Amino acid sequence: MTTTYAALLRGINVGGKKKVPMAELKKLLSGLGHGGVQTYLNSGNAVFTSDSDDQDALAAGLEQAIEAHFGFTVSCLVRDGSYLGAIAGACPFPAADLEAKQLHVTYFSEPVTEDRFAAIDQQAFLPEEFRLGDRALYLYAPDGLGRSKLAEALNKPSVNKGITGTSRNWNTVLKLVQLTGGA
């Protein structure tokens, strides 16, 4: 059975580092035998189809191909459309009432618990807030991610030790749902 997936690449094309042109990413994914390959924005989002149901193996294959082609490592997550749709549908914040720059989702490589974030005093960051979901964290940052002190605290290596996480704004979350048929 063919499934549509989104590949979420972490930390590419930011500040001139780890440049991965989207045309080359498309070629890499096609070269791995995936179909229907398309990219979205220049920030590491690709959609493709595959007969594999092993998302971790798909991510590992893409990571290896990127390292072989570009000479640097890039962490990748691969998620199917139904998962992406479920994450968008479970948003604990009133997404329809917010600007897209105010709402973000960080996708994680594995489940996360409140314990991981226990050292963060959420009250100290209000009105910014975060909530956990299924291998995801929803962040409400009313002044945007670039000015978010809570995002800075959530992104510390001590908090994210041992897991891969990559964030997308709400517009990108919804577009990936659409592109993967996860609605």
Rank of each mutant, 00 (worst) to 15 (best):
E129L: 09
T180K: 05
T166R: 00
E114G: 02
L84K: 10
T166N: 00
V173Q: 11
Q38N: 03
R135C: 14
S158Q: 14
Q178N: 13
L174Y: 04
Y40L: 12
A86W: 08
V173G: 00
F72Q: 06
G61H: 13
L77N: 02
S109N: 03
Q38F: 00
E114K: 13
S30V: 13
G182A: 04
G36A: 10
L77I: 06
Q55E: 15
A100N: 14
S50P: 08
K18E: 03
I120W: 03
P142E: 05
Y40T: 05
K18I: 04
Q102E: 15
A124Q: 13
L41I: 15
N45G: 09
A151C: 09
G133V: 03
T39D: 04
T166G: 00
V173N: 02
T164P: 04
K27C: 07
L179W: 04
K27S: 14
L174I: 11
D53F: 11
K19P: 00
R116F: 11
M1L: 13
R116D: 11
A23F: 04
L137G: 01
R168M: 03
G71K: 09
A90P: 04
Q123I: 08
K27Q: 14
E110N: 01
G89H: 09
P111W: 03
N42D: 14
V20Q: 03
A141P: 08
K27I: 11
V14I: 15
V78E: 06
Y140D: 00
P127F: 07
L29E: 00
M1Y: 12
I120M: 06
S82D: 14
L41C: 02
L103D: 05
E129S: 04
G15P: 09
K19E: 09
T39F: 06
F125A: 02
Q102F: 07
